[in-house]
Lab assay of single mutants.
Amino acid sequence: RSVMTEEYKVPDGMVGFIIGRGGEQISRIQQESGCKIQIAPDSGGLPERSCMLTGTPESVQSAKRLLDQIVE
Rank of each mutant, 00 (worst) to 15 (best):
L66W: 04
L53V: 04
V10A: 04
P47T: 13
Q31D: 15
G44R: 12
S2P: 08
G20K: 04
G13I: 11
E32W: 03
L67Q: 01
P11R: 07
D42I: 07
L66D: 04
T5D: 04
I18D: 03
E6I: 08
S33H: 02
I39Q: 02
D12Y: 10
K64R: 12
G44A: 13
V10F: 06
G23S: 08
F17Y: 12
V71I: 07
L46R: 13
F17E: 15
S50M: 12
R28N: 05
V10Q: 01
G44F: 05
G16F: 03
S27H: 13
E32S: 07
V60F: 01
G22W: 03
R49N: 06
D12K: 08
P41G: 08
I37N: 00
G16M: 05
I70H: 08
D12V: 10
L67M: 05
I18P: 02
D12N: 15
Q38F: 11
D12T: 15
P41R: 11
L46K: 13
P11L: 05
D42C: 12
E58T: 10
S43F: 06
R65E: 12
S50F: 03
S50E: 08
R1N: 15
A40K: 09
I39K: 01
T56Y: 08
E58H: 09
Q25R: 12
V10M: 14
I37M: 07
R21A: 15
L66G: 05
V15P: 04
E58M: 09
G55K: 00
V60P: 00
P57W: 05
V15G: 04
D68S: 13
K36W: 04
Q69S: 12
V3E: 14
Q38K: 10
S59C: 07
T54G: 02
G44S: 14
Q31F: 06
S33L: 02
E24W: 15
Q38H: 11
C51Q: 00
G34M: 05
E72P: 08
M52H: 11
P41H: 04
T54K: 14
R21S: 15
S2E: 13
P11I: 03
S50W: 03
K36L: 11
V71P: 09
I18E: 04
K36T: 08
I19M: 07
Q69M: 09
L67W: 00
S59L: 01
E48Y: 15
A63L: 01
L46W: 04
E32N: 04
D12R: 11
G55L: 00
K9R: 09
V71H: 04
M14N: 05
G16I: 04
E32K: 07
G23E: 13
K9T: 06
K36F: 10
P57F: 15
M14D: 07
S27P: 03
Y8Q: 03
Y8V: 08
R65L: 12
G13T: 15
R65T: 12
G22T: 05
M4G: 04
S43V: 08
I26V: 05
G13W: 10
L53T: 00
S33I: 02
A63C: 15
P57Q: 15
V15C: 04
M14V: 13
V60S: 01
S33E: 01
E32H: 03
Q69I: 09
C51F: 15
V15F: 14
G20R: 05
G13N: 12
V15K: 05
I26D: 01
I19E: 15
S2Q: 15
M14A: 13
S50D: 12
S2G: 14
C35N: 00
G16A: 12
M14P: 02
L46Y: 06
V3R: 11
D12M: 08
C51M: 15
V60Q: 03
Q69C: 07
T56Q: 10
G34Q: 06
Q31W: 03
Q61S: 13
S2T: 14
S33Q: 01
C35I: 02
Q38R: 11
G23D: 09
G20E: 14
P11W: 03
T5R: 13
L66V: 05
G55Q: 00
A40Y: 06
P11S: 05
S33C: 03
G45V: 05
G45A: 09
G13L: 07
G20L: 02
R65S: 11
C35L: 01
E7F: 03
S62Y: 08
P47F: 07
Y8I: 11
G55Y: 00
S50H: 05
V60E: 00
G55A: 01
L67H: 01
E6W: 09
D68T: 11
C51R: 00
K64E: 03
C51A: 08
S27C: 10
L46S: 13
G13R: 13
S2N: 04
T54M: 14
S43E: 10
M4N: 11
E48G: 10
E24A: 11
I19C: 14
G20F: 03
S62P: 01
S27M: 12
Y8H: 15
A63V: 02
G34W: 02
S43K: 06
P47A: 13
V71T: 07
G45D: 14
S33K: 01
E24V: 07
E6H: 07
S2Y: 06
Q38V: 14
E48M: 06
V10Y: 03
L67Y: 00
A63F: 00
A40I: 08
V10H: 01
L46F: 14
S43M: 06
M52I: 12
G20Q: 03
C35A: 10
T56N: 11
G55V: 00
P11A: 07
Y8D: 01
R21L: 15
S27T: 14
L66I: 10
A40R: 08
T56S: 13
K36Y: 04
V60W: 00
G23Q: 08
V60R: 13
L67F: 04
K36P: 01
V60C: 09
D12C: 09
D68C: 08
M14R: 04
G20P: 02
L53G: 00
R49W: 02
C51H: 01
K9F: 11
C51Y: 05
Q38I: 14
I37A: 02
S59T: 08
P47N: 13
I29A: 02
G34H: 09
R65V: 14
A63M: 02
M4Q: 06
R49H: 05
E72T: 15
G34T: 04
T5I: 10
I70Q: 12
A63N: 00
G45T: 07
I37D: 00
S33F: 02
I29Q: 00
G34L: 04
C35G: 01
E24D: 08
G16H: 08
G23H: 03
R28M: 07
S62M: 06
Q25P: 04
S62I: 07
M4F: 14
R1E: 03
I37F: 02
G44H: 06
E72M: 13
G55N: 00
T54D: 03
M14F: 12
T54P: 00
L53C: 02
P57L: 09
I19L: 13
I26E: 02
I70P: 02
Q61E: 15
D68V: 07
I37R: 00
L66H: 09
R1Y: 14
V15E: 05
G23P: 03
R28Y: 04
Q25G: 10
G13S: 15
I18M: 09
M14L: 13
D68Y: 07
P41Q: 11
V15W: 07
K9N: 03
A40S: 11
G22R: 13
S27N: 10
V71L: 09
S50Y: 05
R65Q: 12
E48P: 06
A40N: 05
G22L: 05
I70A: 15
Q69K: 13
R28V: 05
V10D: 01
E24G: 09
E58S: 10
Q61K: 09
Q31Y: 06
L46Q: 14
